[in-house]
Amino acid sequence: MPNEIDWSDSYFHDYVDRGIMKWQGMYLSEHTAEMEKEQQLEEKMIPAKSKMSESDIQQVLASAYEAQSLITLQLEMKDMDNNYFEDITGKILGFDELGILVDEKLVLYEEIRHVALKSFHKWSDVSKEE
């Protein structure tokens, strides 16, 4: 039969499968990447900012809304490891008696720990701050 494969041909026997060795290499690289990711999360601990009074928070929010300035908010909430979440940054799009809308995210007044106007460092400014 002409369509029959000759399995004794050396072409099929030259390949040597590395078997479990290649899987161990893949596991090692994935494990290393996961460990690096965990280390980055540990290094990214966000310190607590000073707790502001309600009147101070309202004053900063009012001036930011009026000037349409960017703000940064630190919330009172913490993650499971007792670390603060990253600051919320954006413009105040609206507000009501319960909270504010910051770039499509509703933030209740009672959740706000600290609020500040977002400051920018001009890239062309080379003067040293002392």
Rank of each mutant, 00 (worst) to 15 (best):
N3F: 02
A33E: 14
I57S: 00
P47W: 09
A64W: 02
S10L: 02
M21D: 10
E86H: 09
E110F: 01
T32S: 12
F85Q: 06
M45E: 10
I5R: 01
E38R: 14
K51G: 00
K118R: 08
D79C: 04
L73S: 00
L108Y: 07
D96Q: 05
N3A: 01
S127V: 09
L93D: 12
I92C: 09
K91I: 02
E111H: 08
L41C: 01
V16N: 13
H121E: 13
M52L: 02
I112L: 13
D56W: 00
G94P: 07
I100M: 08
I71H: 09
E104Y: 11
E38H: 07
M1A: 13
L28A: 15
M45D: 09
G94F: 00
A64S: 15
A67S: 11
L106Q: 12
E104R: 09
I5G: 02
G99H: 00
G90D: 02
S55E: 13
S53D: 11
P2D: 12
K49P: 00
E66Q: 14
D79L: 04
P2W: 07
G94N: 15
S124L: 07
E66H: 11
L28F: 15
S8N: 15
L101K: 04
M21N: 07
K51M: 01
V107W: 06
Q59H: 00
G94A: 10
S69G: 05
D125R: 06
A64I: 00
Y65S: 13
D125W: 03
K118I: 01
I71E: 06
V60I: 15
K44W: 03
K49H: 05
E111P: 03
V102N: 03
D14N: 10
E38N: 12
H31K: 08
